[in-house]
Design a protein around this nucleic acid. Sequence first.
DNA 1: AAACGGTTATGATATATATCATAAAGTGAT
DNA 2: ATCACTTTATGATATATATCATAACCGTTT
Lengths: 228, 228
Amino acid sequence: MATKCDCDQYELRTAFFQSFREDEVSLFCEEKVEKAYSRGDIIIREGEGIKYFSYLRSGLVKLYKTDAAGKDQIITIACPFDFVSLLGIFSETHHTYSVSALEDSILCCIDISLMKGIAMKNGRFSMNLMERLGAVSNKIIQESLEIRKRNTHGKVAYILLKFSKGIYDSLVFDLPVSRREIAENLGMTTEGVIRTLSEFRKEKLIRINGREIEILDDAALERISSFG
Amino acid sequence: MATKCDCDQYELRTAFFQSFREDEVSLFCEEKVEKAYSRGDIIIREGEGIKYFSYLRSGLVKLYKTDAAGKDQIITIACPFDFVSLLGIFSETHHTYSVSALEDSILCCIDISLMKGIAMKNGRFSMNLMERLGAVSNKIIQESLEIRKRNTHGKVAYILLKFSKGIYDSLVFDLPVSRREIAENLGMTTEGVIRTLSEFRKEKLIRINGREIEILDDAALERISSFG
DNA sequence: AAACGGTTATGATATATATCATAAAGTGAT
DNA sequence: ATCACTTTATGATATATATCATAACCGTTT
């Protein structure tokens, strides 16, 4: 499951680690491993010790928490080159959320103490990392506020537009999640999500075919998303 | 309004900047200013350019966003030694939220580029900062999830317990916020908050005298908070 | 003291949303 | 192919919550 790093160094340096010194790039690539997961695999379990700093190389994953009653709450859906490790990574010893694969995914993982070691010695890298981690955390906080202020119609319109514009960049796409998972992300019930999607379909805002969605009236969805 | 630094270095080094070198402590203290604000003062306006990195020395502030309709959404309430600057501080050029004083407050501010300069040169400090900023962002995300999963009774119980245990460490305290602000924090209506508080009063869970609250039945509130 | 604006408060009502029940369709395992 | 199980779907109903209306109260200004 784990293979040696095959990232080309160019990508590494531009996308993430512009601030690495040459010897650090080598060290990083030497130590980094890629791990492949299939759709549905659990990648990280809440409560596990933190071993790696990791980011998503390809695929799609969800970050979520499970409460005492066994109900899941999805924190966010992470796209390629998002960090799977959030900020807690340096202040916590154990994961505070679980991660699982929504699509077949490849993660790049590097030993957390090595990561800390490099950050400790290289302020520029540390800053770079802080900027990136900060942007991710910020995005999660913003999105959480955006969802909170909407009613059910606005929430569903919001997430459809997020998939269409933010993730797949297409008016037609396959939902990577079940209606239940959408509900867990939006703080709604599964039936509520299904019903709202059906209503959008009846109003000819979208076409539904199982998990395949086509946005028919983008402007109307935008209106519902920003109004509701 | 702005005065020179008078933090004693011991506090500085232990609470925040354990990792500073001696010359950095001097530089930091040389450049740092304290700013005093009165209850109600707006400290930072959403959209303003980021000039300072700052943390709360004393008092209580709220971080919030104002939407197009003029409605506020409170992101979090920050206590002394919380950072007022969240993670965006290094990835954004402008503030993405406003900050105002709930109580008379003193902020410690340091020029953002100086902060970046020190972080850039001192990896250990940078790591330390990242840990602290990470913990704050993490707390906000966690709290947002906690609030989201509760119904109105659970939400109000949750915030009462937060004030009692998390902030004032007392069963009797003065609410630092209006009912409207509680609503803005919990994603409820003002009337909903007032009504719920009245119900708690009628059920003898709390005593209300204006903004003064006394927790009478802590266990029941805990039950409502974790169940609802 | 009076007038004003905001906050707290409560009731009546409307509406949004969840819950419950049921069923069809899809999915994976044997 | 059949079975078990989950997901999607829809209707009926219950419930939670918001909205609207009104009023008392409080602090501030005139």
